[in-house]
Design a binder for these strands. Structure first.
Length: 213
DNA sequence: CAGATCACCTGCTTGC
DNA sequence: TGCAAGCAGGTGATCT
């Protein structure tokens, strides 16, 4: 049984078929866990049971005996993509950078918090046009994104409320947020005040003073 | 086909 | 105190 990941997608190869899992916002996998109010699905194996719990039901837990070819129709993983590919594909886009970073077909694995944090680290305005970013600034963004994601993984992500993962642990990256959720507070890098706007239906946080278009 | 908008769902927070 | 309204977010459907 091989377990793979691409972006936010978890793919588990079974003897016959494929299990596709997406945790959405609040999903978690439990091995031999106790089923409860939020257990949405389970799969029994010879040596145990895989449970899928999900409070907000944004996740997916699907078994395919014959997986469709386009099941993983997402771009290269954000931690794997080369700068050359990142930049050349970015240049062809006309929309804003925030939207592009969230687009899983561009690169896979970046969520709302990490898009805001990466743009802040790179000093780039979330509404900056993707196709107009200089190569030098694109490289800063690329490196910032890698650093933000690596640090977040090291801290087991950002836990909302009292959410715990399948191992019963909380993430702690939320205490390291430099811009996400800090609207109205002073920028940690300059004298600006963090602003919150809505982009692509998502809360977007940035410093209007040190993040340039 | 790229981009924009809406809907889905549930627990927590806010306001009266 | 209690209850209603507002909010959060990943993605897929739908429309332009």
């Amino acid at each position: 049984m091989a377990v793979r990941r691409r972006g936010k997608q978890i793919l588990i190869d079974l003897d016959k078929g494929l299990l596709y899992v997406h945790l959405g916002m609040t999903g978690k996998l439990l091995w031999n866990g106790r089923s409860g109010k939020y257990t949405r699905a389970f799969l029994e194996f010879k040596n145990g049971t895989l449970l899928f719990d999900d409070i907000r039901t944004f996740g997916r837990f699907e078994f395919f005996s014959a997986p469709p070819a386009n099941l993983t129709n997402v771009g290269p993983d954000a931690l794997v993509v080369s700068f050359e590919e990142f930049y050349s594909r970015m240049r062809k886009r006309k929309g804003s950078l925030k939207v592009l970073l969230l687009n899983q077909s561009f690169i896979a694995g970046v969520g709302n918090i990490y898009a805001d944090e990466a743009l802040f680290a790179a000093r780039i305005h979330p509404l900056a046009r993707s196709g107009r970013l200089s190569e030098r600034r694109a490289r800063v963004l690329y490196e910032s994104l890698g650093e933000v994601l690596a640090l977040a993984i090291e801290h087991r992500g950002s836990s909302i409320s009292d959410y715990v993962d399948g191992a019963g642990e909380q993430g702690s990256f939320q205490s390291l947020h430099n811009v996400y959720g800090r609207q109205g507070e002073t920028c940690l890098r300059c004298e600006g005040t963090i602003r919150r706007i809505v982009v692509a239906q998502r809360g977007t946080h940035y410093c209007p003073r040190c993040q340039r278009v």
